[in-house]
Write a protein that binds this DNA or RNA. Structure first.
Lengths: 253, 253
DNA sequence: ACCAGGGTTTCCGCCTGGCGGAAAAGTGAC
DNA sequence: GTCACTTTTCCGCCAGGCGGAAACCCTGGT
């Protein structure tokens, strides 16, 4: 799911209310007044005031000099203990740095969550093609390079779930035919590389490879994203594979 | 505070209980059984079971194939919205990369929280002196390079608070005399650089500079940490200042 | 100086749902 | 089969979470 389960309809538990306060924040709303937060969480102002007090006391939120509320440091400290985020980033950082040095293009690391990818790290090339992704962004799997990798190696029921849902189109080149996607996924499994050519934006092509955990499961995917014009995926593939393999080895330690 | 306010003594609110579940995790306990989590949170097992259910549903926790509970991806997604963490890291990443390329030593970025520093980013030099810090670690301010910077430029009452508390000794060279520390802080403010020489470990010296926000306040500190033997802080200072200034400029945009 | 329209904070009666002890069920090692 | 842990379920109790209302605050406009 994109957002934690804090649907406003029906009775909500105390926990759900507290977590709904946290879900009021997003990339477009990083700083909120108490009243705005209450509206976004669909809670009465006095309830929100009380819950915000609890979160402020714990460090889940901070109140700025401007009176606005923001996500706090302690929440991040706890979240940093998630193995699929900071731990993965730390294991990946040297190899991502190497891949960046080798290509000077955007380098991205993502994990799967349900039927979506979540980007956990990226190095943005200064002169590289602009990319939509930012750390913490969640995105459908079927169009991006990393998404294709993660879907290809996902459990069968996840693949069937993704293939039976309507596939979202982002450009005229986005693959939205399930049969074609199924075929692409088989190809990704065979070659150990995914190429997404102008499926997300019309100027970007990405090449992605799987990152495996200690027991061989695919736990993340690594990609470079380059200008589609003049791109040579076959030339990029070895470097991406090598970097992904290095991350896999780092995770095995 | 180091840990969110979830003291186990006395009556606890529903919010405090939920947050105590999250606080059960730390760097040494990233994966926990339900029973272990209940013990660490000082909650009855059935209460913990219910709260864990709420967090699993929201994405704050995940249950692995091994049955163990871990901090989940959605918590990190929310935490990634904290301006003092991912946002700061992203602004800092190019300059930290440059400083690393220039020195090939450990590069660290930290923010102040109360009377402690929290490390929000680091680049570990492959052949550099081992450092204690990891991302998400919190540490007293007075001994580290970044801590000296953050303390020097903190509001007066924060400085007085730090100076009136007993200063913790880590090595025989740790400054624990408040008068001497006060003098060092004045020096840091004057020179815009802090040097911590073997105050944390006996083999490391760090050089740190302030990172300023758009309104000129010191919002973070950047440092390199090198082998103390043969270290030339004066030679390192310009590069650290330059990188810190670049981050300050990035934050002003 | 006043007003309006937002905001935040406080109060407190209501009643629901959070709480946790007990028991049942599950798991793995021996 | 036993043991020691684990996880899950049940359900009676009552505490505290809830939120409407009101008070108070702040800022910008006139």
């Amino acid at each position: 799911m994109g957002e934690g389960s804090t649907a406003a309809d029906g009775p909500r538990t105390a926990s759900a209310r507290l977590l709904a306060v946290l879900d009021a924040f997003d990339a477009e709303h990083r700083a909120l007044t108490l009243s705005a937060l209450a509206r976004r969480a669909r809670l009465p102002v006095s309830t929100t005031h009380r819950l915000v007090g609890d979160l402020l006391a714990w460090g889940g939120l901070e109140r700025g000099d401007d009176g606005l509320l923001r996500v706090g440091l302690h929440l991040w400290e706890v979240a940093a203990l998630a193995p699929r985020t900071i731990g993965l980033r730390e294991a990946a950082a040297p190899s991502m740095g190497d891949l960046y040095e080798a290509t000077h293009e955007n380098v991205q690391l993502a994990v799967r969550d349900g039927l979506e990818v979540v980007f956990v790290e990226r190095i943005a090339g200064r002169h590289a093609v602009p990319v939509l992704t930012r750390v913490g962004l969640r995105f459908p799997m079927s169009a991006t390079g990393v998404g294709l990798v993660l879907l290809a190696f996902a459990p069968r029921e996840v693949q069937e779930g993704a293939l039976s849902a309507p596939l979202e189109r982002f450009t005229e080149r986005t693959v939205v035919d399930p049969r074609r996607l199924r075929s692409m996924l088989a190809d990704v499994r065979r070659r150990g590389i995914a190429v997404s050519d102008r499926q997300v934006t019309m100027d970007a092509l990405s090449v992605a490879a799987p990152v495996r955990g200690p027991d061989g499961d695919v736990v993340a995917a690594l990609s470079v994203v380059v200008q589609a014009d003049g791109a040579e995926p076959q030339a990029l593939a070895p470097a991406v594979r090598t970097a992904a393999a290095a991350i896999s080895r780092a995770l095995a330690r």
